[in-house]
Design a protein around this nucleic acid. Structure first.
Lengths: 124, 124
DNA sequence: TCCATCTACAACCATTTGGTTGTACGTTAA
DNA sequence: TTAACGTACAACCAAATGGTTGTAGATGGA
């Protein structure tokens, strides 16, 4: 996960992903598109590869780069979880406001720092 | 975007996001949950804040942290675009496979988007 | 063969990152 | 007021990042 998001946290690398989604490209062809050395682009591709975001395939002396949609989907899925959790929280909150005056739900967020009345929504 | 994905590229920060999705937490309470100093957690929160992933709200001497679902959605949406582009490519490719008997590998990696014979051997 | 191309990798450098400690300041409670 | 709590911020440090150049190994074509 760390490697995945780290790989996405760079404009050049995201651009490489976009280019290699449209079709395989050799590292040299990719390097021509950026104002940096071949070695730098090579490193970016390595970062993407170690994150599982792209795969490489040999063709003669070239190395063709292609982005792996499954890995992209993995990142998307992780963010979906966050959103879902947030929505569940809002739903629970709405339910409480509409129905229950003060019963705390079983959901205990942390172990130690209890204080289960974590000031939900109460703007002050 | 760089800041957004960079903020997500750390286990501690993603955990902070998950905790603060379930309800607001002060920085001190957050810090209790991790084996690092208060200042370190404070820095993580700052990174999340500058990426727009969380917002802070004062309550007396505390600073309550809460994750902003809109920003999370922004990241998810960006990844969706990548996936969509990939799917469009596959559709185009499938169409060609169904239609074209077996064109010789002209293999002109020119400027990409115009060339319709992208990546002759996709799965080999 | 010889040469150009494509790739891999090491060494190096400046900057950033993730962590620490220490200090200072505002707020709450005794 | 004084003490404890929560926060902010600076200074510092080791390690990782993003970039460079240089060298060397394969591969393809004349």
């Amino acid at each position: 996960m760390d490697r995945l998001f780290h790989a996405l946290a760079d404009t050049t690398r995201r651009d490489i992903l976009r280019r290699c989604v449209r079709g395989e490209l050799s590292v040299s062809r990719l390097a021509e598109a950026y104002p940096m050395s071949f070695a730098a682009v090579q490193k970016h591709v390595t970062v993407l590869e170690r994150a599982g975001l792209v795969t490489k395939r040999r063709r003669g002396r070239e190395q063709l780069v292609r982005t792996d949609p499954d890995a992209v989907d993995g990142a998307r899925r992780a963010l979906d979880e966050l959103e879902t959790a947030w929505r569940a929280r809002v739903d629970r909150m709405s339910g409480l406001l509409a129905d229950d005056p003060g019963t705390g739900p079983g959901t205990d967020p942390g172990a130690g720092p209890g204080t289960r009345e974590t000031t939900e929504g109460q703007d002050r």
